[in-house]
């Protein structure tokens, strides 16, 4: 079990998340895909920390911060989606173009 295993796993997770962001139209599903991307980054951070810097665990500290920001992001984004749904009766991101022009 080498570092490469974890790197390929995190790359696959990241690519699946990117596909979800690009291919979905529902705002909630895009949010779920963003969570996948953040987790892929975390796997990579922890794997690099485990293999290259095994005594200090620096990567784990940064992964904790990533999880914190992800939690804040989910709470705020879901509140925005809820409010958009109340105002526009839709979660389709193609229809939410208030700021486009």
């Amino acid at each position: 079990m080498s570092l490469l295993h974890f790197q390929v796993l995190s790359a696959a997770l990241f690519a699946i998340g990117v596909y979800g962001v690009l291919a979905r139209r529902s705002a909630v599903l895009i949010l779920l895909s963003i969570e996948l991307v953040l987790n892929a980054v975390n796997v990579n951070l922890v794997a690099f920390a485990a293999f290259l810097d095994p005594t200090r665990g620096l990567g784990q500290v940064i992964a904790v911060f990533v999880i914190t920001v992800a939690a804040a992001e989910v709470g705020l984004a879901l509140a925005i989606i809820l409010q958009l749904y109340r105002k526009r009766a839709s979660v389709d991101v193609d229809k939410i173009d208030l700021l486009k022009w």
Binding site: F14, Y19, L22, S26, V91, D94
Partner: peptide, 22 residues
């Protein structure tokens, strides 16, 4: 509400981009 809004018409491009990224 979600039934009609699942897939974006650009999903093949998204698949291409994600595969290339991987």
């Amino acid at each position: 509400e979600y039934k009609g809004v699942m897939e974006n018409p650009q999903w093949p491009l998204g698949l291409l981009a994600a595969t290339a990224l991987f």
